[in-house]
């Protein structure tokens, strides 16, 4: 009997602090699997952002840096410019990337910075207890949109992939999801492709991963997957938005 499935080497053998059913765990594993399969653990440097996944520096076996909220793409730029031969990735949530870190995100893409951004979109601020995020959907109830997000005074959710795909520097921009085994397989392919895009020096790569937040959505983990499919997927269509 041979092992067909086990913990990837690039993922530390420690319990994850994420809430039960939170799909951050799946995404961490996919990133680690991609690093293992591309055999780049020794030359990878990851940048953790601020949010639930801030502790990702405890979960990846490669060198890690923890960046100020929203600044991971800038920190990653600094690392990549010093070690262009390294593979540099950031792991960011929607608040980090599309709210406070919008400028860093857009300009890293515009520069065609050869880094890979793993962007986890769960339409809410998880770590701080469920506030409205830039990707919170219209009508979605959160701690800071208690009557449901309304465009009139809270504006519209941001479609990051569509936005970044208009930038020349973007070489690979894809949106995936981890709500089903099929989509998990596609997500892994996209993450691996993003890393390959970086390694081949084509430019900026980002994978937006639709993800759940059972605790702050107020749903069970299984219900959360249904909610994601029914509500997030229509507004955030999966697919490849840029591929050089």
């Amino acid at each position: 009997m041979t092992k067909v499935f086990e913990k990837p080497k690039a993922l530390c053998d420690v319990p994850l602090h994420y809430c039960p059913g939170c799909t951050h765990g799946i995404i961490h594993r996919l990133v680690a699997e991609a690093i293992d399969e591309l055999d780049i653990l020794g030359k990878t440097v990851g940048v953790a952002s601020v949010g639930c996944s801030v502790f990702s520096y405890n979960y990846f076996e490669c060198d890690m840096q923890q960046a100020a909220h929203g600044r991971a793409p800038a920190v990653a730029t600094g690392i990549k410019r010093v070690h262009p031969g390294n593979v540099v990735f950031t792991y960011q949530g929607d608040g980090d990337l599309a709210a406070i870190g919008t400028a860093e995100m857009v300009h890293a893409a515009a520069r065609g910075e050869k880094i890979t951004v793993i962007f986890v979109n769960n339409a809410i601020y998880g770590m701080t207890g469920g506030q409205m995020a830039p990707t919170t959907l219209l009508g979605q109830v959160t701690q800071t949109s208690p009557y449901g997000r309304n465009a009139e005074n809270q504006g519209y959710p941001i479609k990051v992939c569509e936005m970044l795909s208009t930038l020349e520097g973007s070489a690979y921009i894809a949106r995936v999801s981890v709500d089903s085994v099929k989509n998990i397989r596609n997500a892994k392919k996209a993450i691996k492709k993003a890393f390959e895009t970086q390694i081949e020096g084509k430019g900026f790569s980002l994978v937006e991963v639709l993800s759940t937040c059972p605790t702050n959505w107020g749903l069970s983990p299984v219900e959360s997957l249904d909610w994601l499919r029914a509500n997030m997927m229509p507004f955030y269509p999966l697919g490849i938005y840029k591929e050089k």
């Binding site: 800038a74 920190v75 730029t77 690392i79």
Partner: peptide
């Protein structure tokens, strides 16, 4: 962004 690039480079 600049000071955070400094952070990354210094950390490297």
């Amino acid at each position: 962004a600049a000071i955070n690039m400094v952070y990354g480079a210094a950390g490297a």
